[in-house]
Simulated assay, not measured.
Amino acid sequence: MQEYVSNRIALGHRGEDLASEHLVGQGYRILDRNWRCRQGEIDIIATRGNVVAFVEVKTRSTLAYGHPFEAITPTKLARLRRLAARWCADNDPHIPVIRIDVIAVLLPYTGAPQIEHLAGAHS
C-alpha cells in the first residue's frame, strides 16, 4: 500500500510539473504552486495579461477510471472558487480577472504525455 501511495504522489507531482511547463509555454507566469491554507490547496496559480488562473491539475496513467476532467465535480469547483478568493484576499485583492482552469495530464506507461487545458471551468 505504501508503494502505491508514493507512486500516486510521484505521478501527481510529475503531472503538476508538466502542467507548469505547459502554462509557461503558453505565455503564463507561475505565481505559486501547491498553495495551501486550512480550507485546501491550489495546485498552480498563474498569470497571463490581466488574468490570474487558479489551476487544478488531474493526472492519470490510464483512462481506465475515466478522463481526468471527470474528477472535477461541482463541489470541487466551489472549493476552488473559495480558495481562489482566499488567495486573492491574502495576496492581491485587486486582481481584475480570476479564472478557474483545469489541466488534465495523461502519463501513459509508454508513449508521450498528453496535456489538455480547460480554461474557465465552471459548473
Rank of each mutant, 00 (worst) to 15 (best):
Arg60Gln: 15
Pro113Val: 04
Leu83His: 06
Pro68Cys: 12
Tyr109Ser: 09
Ala85Trp: 03
Leu31Asn: 02
Asp92Thr: 10
Arg48Trp: 02
Ala112Val: 04
Lys76Arg: 14
Pro113Phe: 08
Asn50Arg: 15
Glu41Tyr: 11
Arg86Lys: 15
Arg36Tyr: 05
Ala85Glu: 10
Val51Asp: 01
His94Gln: 14
Glu21Ala: 06
Tyr28Ile: 05
Leu106Gln: 07
Ile42Arg: 01
Ile30Phe: 01
Val24Asp: 11
Thr62Ala: 08
Lys58Trp: 11
Pro108Thr: 10
Leu63Phe: 14
Arg38Trp: 10
Ala19Thr: 01
Ala53Val: 05
Glu70Ile: 00
Phe54Leu: 00
Trp35Arg: 06
Pro96Met: 08
Asp92Ala: 12
Ile98Leu: 07
Val55Lys: 01
Ala104Glu: 05
Ala71Cys: 10
Asn50Val: 01
His94Trp: 14
Glu70Ala: 14
Val55His: 03
Val105Trp: 03
Arg48Gly: 04
Cys37Ile: 02
Asp43Val: 04
Ile9Met: 08
Arg14Thr: 13
Tyr109Lys: 11
Ile72Pro: 05
Gly25Ile: 04
Glu56Asn: 13
His22Asp: 03
Glu56Tyr: 10
Thr62Arg: 12
His22Tyr: 09
Thr110Ser: 11
Leu107Arg: 08
Gly111Pro: 07
Ala112Phe: 09
Asn34Lys: 14
Gln39Pro: 00
Ala112Trp: 06
Pro108Glu: 04
Ile42Met: 10
Arg82Ile: 02
Ser61Ile: 12
Lys58Asn: 05
Thr110Arg: 09
Glu41Thr: 05
Arg82Phe: 11
Leu11Arg: 15
Gly27Ala: 02
Leu80Asp: 00
Arg29Leu: 08
Ile30Trp: 00
Asp43Met: 08
Gly27Glu: 03
Leu31Ile: 04
Ala78His: 09
Asp90Trp: 03
Ala19Met: 07
Ile9Ser: 10
Val24Phe: 10
Glu21Asp: 12
Arg33Trp: 00
Arg14Pro: 01
Lys76Val: 15
Gln26Val: 00
Ala64Glu: 06
Gly27Gln: 08
Thr75Glu: 15
Arg29Pro: 00
Arg86Phe: 03
Gly49Asp: 10
Arg36Cys: 02
Ala84Asn: 01
Leu23Asp: 04
Ala89Leu: 10
His94Cys: 12
Val102Pro: 00
Val102Thr: 15
Pro68Tyr: 11
Ser61Tyr: 07
Arg79Ser: 08
Glu21Tyr: 02
Arg14Val: 09
Thr75Phe: 14
Pro74Ile: 14
Leu106His: 12
Val102His: 12
Pro93Thr: 08
Val97Trp: 07
Leu106Cys: 12
Glu70Phe: 09
Ala19Asp: 10
Gln39Val: 01
Val55Tyr: 01
Ile42Tyr: 05
Val102Phe: 05
Glu41Cys: 04
His94Phe: 12
Arg82Ala: 15
Ala46Val: 07
Ala85Phe: 06
Glu16Asn: 09
Gly27Trp: 06
Val52His: 02
Val51His: 08
Pro93Glu: 03
Asn7Val: 10
Ile72Asn: 11
Thr59His: 10
Ile72Ala: 06
Arg36Ser: 13
Val24Leu: 09
